[in-house]
Design a protein around this nucleic acid. Structure first.
Length: 497
RNA sequence: GGUCGCGUGGCCGAGCGGUUAGGCAGAGGUCUGCAAAACCUUGUACAGCGGUUCGAAUCCGCUCGCGACCUCCA
């Protein structure tokens, strides 16, 4: 294990800390997943890619990581006009579908998009609706601790009482007094003892679609409960890393800490990591703002803001070129630049496959070249060790790419860097791009165009009576299962039967 | 209003006290049948004003501008 140098920024301390696993070589990581009531958008891609990279890098360092990312298919209340109504249920009524049908549909598209972005699947992907008993148990346990109270079939977390012994607000840096004055008038506010209290269980109105039987009557779980229930079930009461978007910092993650401490008497996570937002024209991209672009729109180019389609790997690369804690502004110009950068990197990958070491006695080793290569390799890893600075790592990879391209064009001879140096250069570049950054070649799929170009050559060869070439083309196409058909007045092709 | 963060060259985006980040775009060159790619060289950057320091984009203060959270949100 190479955990010695890894540092990560812990929101809890607001500092970069050395990463020390609680129980090495194992690492437990919980990341807040999507609420499946709409297509995944660019904003969903950021945490998915950020924590996929964290997952990949921890595994690279030799850790055995259990990566849990939930699917929220119930719970969260909507704001404003539809106060108190379940988000999933609302969408269901709109489309005349079963709530679970909506959740399933968007879970599927989320998975499809995440696969396209080449994110590794989490070890466990639990659903909120599959953990209702666990959540009820949790509520009971918090009531038993004297930190929650029931009113009209709803249960609220007693933040004031909790704050007597523990500190509510330690993650987000809030002070309880400030919170009590600033809170808005929401549904159920009248039932709460204090404005800062939050719901653990909500009484469901008869027309409410998703509801369950509980000791407090028919209802549904509160906004923050599922993550506490599922993280403690699969990772234990105290685990290594909890991740999510910065917008979840308060109140969601703050409440998770309070819930965890209330029933398990320990902070749920040792390290809290938060990715920053993607902005569009400097403003946060979000569902509620109506300025979001879905991933499938991005992949197909079908959105008014898009000048063209951007491939999944272009998006992945684009996100990796910024540090995860910085905001990243969307623009066609930036995406186009990302597309070129990505392709440059992938062309490097292809060049690596083609290169092989050749020795010659006439050329001496060049220690300066070797130093530059070793330094870039070392710095690329050091950048990852420094709070997963993919942007900086990519910069160093481009420096390596220059060497690779120089080898390819003959401006640098393999002998100058020695066999060992040569292999290290090729291997590191390839491994870093594909395994750590998770970038892969997107093969072009233009079968028709390629075939027609080839058949054009075939036709010309035939006209010129160059039958050797004609046979060659026919043979090579046959190898991939395609037969050339010489018709009376044209040349066509068909799949070999 | 409270809390937190940001402002880097034409664009994106690292850097967080002293070394060329890098990509895209631009200019010049090498290579090339042409082109492309690639390689080499290259430019006006650190919002403004003060301060600390031998030295600041980097630390401190103020000013201006922008954003996030405080309500579901990635």
């Amino acid at each position: 294990m190479k955990q010695n140098q890894l540092k990560l920024y812990n929101t809890l301390s607001r500092k970069k800390e050395a990463f020390e696993a609680i129980n090495p070589p194992f690492v437990g990581m919980y990341v807040c997943g999507p609420t499946v009531y709409g297509d995944a958008h660019l904003g969903h891609a950021r945490p998915a890619i950020t924590f996929d990279t964290v997952y990949r890098y921890l595994r690279h360092l030799g850790f055995k990581v259990r990566y849990v990312r939930n699917i929220t298919d119930v719970g969260h209340l909507t704001g404003d006009a539809d106060e108190g109504e379940d988000k999933i249920a609302k969408k269901a009524k709109l489309e005349q579908l079963e709530p679970m049908e909506v959740a399933q549909q968007y879970t599927d598209t989320y998975h499809r998009d995440m696969d396209l972005l080449n994110t590794l699947k989490p070890s466990i992907e639990p659903r909120a609706t599959g953990h209702i008993p666990e959540q009820i148990e949790l509520v009971e346990s918090i009531i038993n601790e004297g930190l929650a109270y029931e009113v009209n079939g709803s249960v609220y977390f007693d933040v004031l009482k909790y704050n007597e012994k523990k500190q509510y607000g330690k993650l987000s840096g809030r002070v309880l007094e400030d919170l009590m004055s600033g809170s808005r008038d929401l549904d159920g506010q009248g039932e709460k003892r204090n404005a800062a209290d939050f719901a653990l269980w909500k009484n469901a109105a008869p027309e409410h679609l998703m509801k369950w039987q509980s000791p407090w009557g028919i209802g549904f779980p509160g906004w923050h409960l599922e993550c506490t229930a599922m993280s403690s079930k699969y990772l234990g009461k105290h685990f290594d890393i909890h991740g999510g978007g910065m917008d979840l910092l308060f109140p969601h993650h703050e409440c998770e800490i309070a819930q965890g401490n209330a029933c398990n008497h320990v902070d749920p996570a040792k390290y809290w990591m938060h990715n920053n937002m993607i902005t569009i024209n400097g403003q946060k991209m979000g569902k509620s703002l109506g300025n979001f672009i879905t991933l499938s729109e991005l992949f197909s180019g079908s959105h008014d803001l898009l000048e063209q389609a951007y491939s999944p790997m272009t998006i992945r690369y684009f996100i990796l070129t910024a540090h995860y804690r910085s905001t990243l502004d969307f623009s066609n110009e930036a995406l186009k630049a990302a597309q070129k950068g990505y392709k440059k990197l992938i062309n490097g990958l292809r060049t690596c496959e083609k290169l092989s070491y050749t020795d010659t006695n006439e050329i001496e080793q060049d220690s300066k070249q070797m130093e530059q290569i070793n330094s870039s390799i070392e710095q690329a890893y050091r950048a990852m060790d420094d709070d997963f600075n993919t942007a900086q790592a990519i910069g160093h990879l481009f420096n390596l790419l220059k060497k690779i391209n120089s080898l390819h064009t003959g401006q640098l001879h393999p002998s100058q860097i020695g066999q060992e140096g040569f292999q290290k250069l090729i291997d590191t570049f390839t491994y870093f791009v594909t395994e750590i950054l998770g970038l892969k070649e997107e093969k072009i799929d233009h079968q028709e165009k390629l075939l027609s170009a080839l058949l054009q050559v075939y036709t010309e060869a035939k006209t010129a009576r160059n039958y050797q070439k004609v046979d060659e083309i026919r043979a090579s196409l046959k190898e991939i299962g395609i037969v050339v058909k010489d018709m009376k007045d044209k040349i066509d092709w068909a799949y070999e039967e």
